[in-house]
Amino acid sequence: MANLSIYILSFIMLTSAVAHIVAPEFYKAMIPSFIPFLVANILAALAEGAIGILLLIPKYRHIGGLGFMLLMMAFLPVHMWDLVRENPAIGPPPAPAIRLAFQFALIYVGWRIFKKFLMAKSKIDI
């Protein structure tokens, strides 16, 4: 994975973190009603911001990749819930199904970053 893609992913994560704070209403429809909106929104912003920063720091990039993978896994139930809702937040069918499939690709991206930069870190530390 090229470093440019790491910087793009970091930018997306940091932009999303800011968006959770600046425009929280955008995310309201995506968060199930049984989950406290304010708590979920703040936690998502903090996680995305931390991951975005970790991806920028080569020494901690593997942790950023692992964090990204875990965050995408944490979002999986929300995307599954959206798939079966009467009015999906992502958009009309088949958009929720496409988004759910894309979620698995994002999990894989996080795994690849973690694996690649953990291996690079272990070569440096030896």
Rank of each mutant, 00 (worst) to 15 (best):
F68S: 10
I12R: 01
M80I: 13
L83W: 10
V18W: 03
N3Y: 12
I21N: 05
S33V: 10
G65K: 09
P94N: 12
F68V: 09
I63N: 00
V84I: 14
L70Y: 09
A47I: 11
A17T: 02
N87H: 12
L43G: 04
F11I: 14
M30D: 05
P77I: 04
A89T: 11
G52K: 02
P93D: 08
N41A: 06
A74D: 02
M30V: 12
N41G: 10
T15Q: 05
K28H: 14
K28P: 09
S33Y: 05
L76V: 15
I6A: 05
H62W: 15
N87Y: 11
I12V: 15
A44K: 07
F26N: 01
R61F: 13
F11Y: 09
T15R: 00
L54N: 03
L70P: 06
F68H: 12
L76W: 13
N41W: 02
K28M: 08
G49Q: 04
I42P: 05
P32Q: 06
A45E: 02
A2I: 11
V78G: 04
H79R: 11
F68R: 07
S33R: 04
S10T: 12
I12K: 01
L71M: 15
M13F: 15
S16W: 03
E25N: 13
M80K: 06
F75C: 11
F75W: 12
S5N: 09
M69S: 14
A44H: 00
A50E: 00
P77H: 00
G49K: 06
E86W: 09
L83V: 12
I51T: 10
P94M: 08
I53G: 01
K28Q: 13
I90H: 10
K28Y: 14
F37M: 08
P94G: 10
I63H: 10
I51Y: 06
